[in-house]
Design a protein around this nucleic acid. Sequence first.
DNA 1: CGGCATCCTTACAGATACTG
DNA 2: CAGTATCTGTAAGGATGCCG
Lengths: 103, 103
Amino acid sequence: MRAVQDSMDVLNGKWKIPIISSICYYNKRRFSDILHDVEGISNRMLSKELKELEINQLIVRTIQDTQPITVEYTLTDHGKTLQTIINNLTDWGIQHRKKIVGR
Amino acid sequence: MRAVQDSMDVLNGKWKIPIISSICYYNKRRFSDILHDVEGISNRMLSKELKELEINQLIVRTIQDTQPITVEYTLTDHGKTLQTIINNLTDWGIQHRKKIVGR
DNA sequence: CGGCATCCTTACAGATACTG
DNA sequence: CAGTATCTGTAAGGATGCCG
């Protein structure tokens, strides 16, 4: 009961899932790449969300020593375990849309 | 990709999952019962959330012709299909808590 | 009992500009 | 490139009181 709330806290907001999906799909992804992948997000939001995901150990931030510097984000093993949930939510979302919208 | 967002929209906020869990556990539940089950929620919020859940056809509101009137909330078949997701989220939440808090 | 109306405070989030 | 800083509007959400 508290557990389910913990999960929702980690995934809350509009952006977490799209961000994770982006990184997951490309395996590793840079800040500006994600900024383009996730439609409508601002750099301010992306920055904040990435920080939260990092704190929750779902992603890893790696600074590349280039000029100018680039930063790569990858999923941790723990982050990858979200795949199941994302799939579940996707399936349910499709069913739900059929039920509600598709009448 | 949009599908997963649809799901999150339906389950957004702090309260939807706890409310559904309450109704699910007791099978049917009254307004004031849920108010007690879900810790910290205000009647204003509960009222709003229940409406949204009803619009999304996850729960059904039934007025009992008693004096004073009582109102019962039950899950629809569609609402019951959330059980899997809730279970997944619960499992993941437990793992997550072990990983993050329990170090 | 089961809400709705009102007021009010805070958190969320967009736009824009700026920095190392 | 990868963010921070600031400013601001909106909406979420709590407290309280009232009503059928």
